[in-house]
Amino acid sequence: MLQMLHEKGLRSEHCYMLGMASIGAAFASWLLSKRLEENGIARADRWGIFIGEWAPTFIGLGNGLRTYEK
């Protein structure tokens, strides 16, 4: 799978940037959900955790793709 992604043009830098962006998106979604929804902080926490779990996935993919770039 990693080889296919590398051949399609995806590079480790792209995945690292997506990982960092997902950290920012997790914080933003938590903050917006906390302030704009009436369901309370529990729902805001779930949104933040859900999006925050993307970061390790993207960083792991970046590490894997780095092996094909060497």
Rank of each mutant, 00 (worst) to 15 (best):
F50L: 15
S33Y: 04
A26Q: 09
E37L: 12
L65H: 00
I41Y: 13
P56N: 07
E13H: 03
L61G: 02
A42V: 11
I59S: 01
A21C: 08
I51L: 15
R43F: 07
L36Q: 12
L10V: 15
S22R: 06
K70V: 06
A55S: 12
E38L: 09
E13T: 06
T57N: 10
F58D: 04
S22A: 13
N39S: 15
N39V: 14
W30M: 04
G52K: 02
E53H: 09
H6S: 11
A28D: 01
T67D: 10
A25V: 06
S22V: 00
A44C: 10
H14L: 03
I23H: 03
G60D: 00
E7I: 09
A44N: 08
I49M: 13
W54S: 07
G62H: 09
F27R: 06
M20F: 12
L5Q: 08
E69G: 08
S33G: 15
G64W: 03
A44P: 05
P56G: 08
A25I: 01
E69D: 12
L31R: 04
L61P: 06
L61N: 01
L2Q: 01
E7P: 01
L18G: 04
A28M: 09
G19W: 06
E38G: 15
L65S: 03
R11A: 12
W30Q: 01
A25F: 12
G48D: 01
N39Q: 15
L65N: 00
K34N: 12
G9K: 01
G19D: 04
G60F: 14
L18F: 09
R43P: 00
A44F: 05
A26V: 01
E38T: 14
M20V: 10
M17G: 00
M17Y: 13
G40A: 14
A21Q: 09
E7T: 06
G24S: 09
R66Y: 12
D45I: 15
L32D: 02
M1D: 11
E53M: 10
L31C: 05
L10D: 08
K34Y: 15
P56C: 10
K70Q: 15
I23V: 15
G24E: 03
E13R: 05
S33H: 04
P56S: 08
W30H: 07
Y68A: 09
G40T: 13
L31D: 12
L10K: 06
S12P: 07
A21K: 07
W47L: 14
S22D: 07
S12C: 10
A26E: 03
I41Q: 14
G40S: 13
G24L: 05
T67I: 06
H6Q: 08
Y68S: 05
G64S: 07
G62L: 02
E37S: 13
H6A: 10
L32R: 03
L2S: 02
I41S: 15
R46C: 09
G62P: 00
L36T: 11
I23P: 05
A28I: 09
C15R: 02
W47Y: 13
A21E: 05
S29I: 01
S33E: 10
K34F: 14
I51H: 03
L2D: 08
L10G: 06
L32V: 15
G64T: 01
F50E: 08
K34P: 02
L31I: 13
E7W: 12
L61T: 09
R35G: 11
L65W: 01
L36V: 13
T67M: 02
S12L: 03
M4D: 09
T57M: 14
L5G: 04
